[in-house]
């Protein structure tokens, strides 16, 4: 029983961890591009921010899966 709980915890950790890495990779280029655009035109700040935070959804999916693994 304890071993099963341990496996679930590892699964939940992987779900959040891997999703976090994916988000980081996605956000790396999006944020770099956003900064590049904003340095030339400050009015792009609002739009650029939306694109930077879009990859955050992936880590939220990971978090939801982790919750489902542990609590459902």
């Amino acid at each position: 029983m304890e071993a099963d709980m341990g496996m679930l915890a590892i699964g939940a950790g992987l779900a959040v961890g891997l999703a976090g890495i994916g988000t980081g990779l996605g956000q790396k280029d999006a944020a770099a591009a956003a900064i590049g655009a904003i340095t030339e035109d400050k009015s792009m700040f609002g739009k650029a921010m939306i694109f930077v935070v879009l990859p955050e959804t992936i880590v939220i999916f990971g978090l939801v899966i982790a919750f489902m693994i542990i609590f459902v």
Binding site: L25, D29, A30, I35, G36, A37, T39, E40, M44
Partner: peptide, 25 residues
């Protein structure tokens, strides 16, 4: 995989910068 772009160059930053510059031409 992680080192692919960091060693290669800051393409995303520079591309976005020049595209923003191009709009002011």
């Amino acid at each position: 995989m992680l080192g692919r772009k960091s060693g290669g160059g800051n393409y995303a930053y520079v591309s976005a910068k020049v595209k923003a510059k191009k709009t002011s031409l």
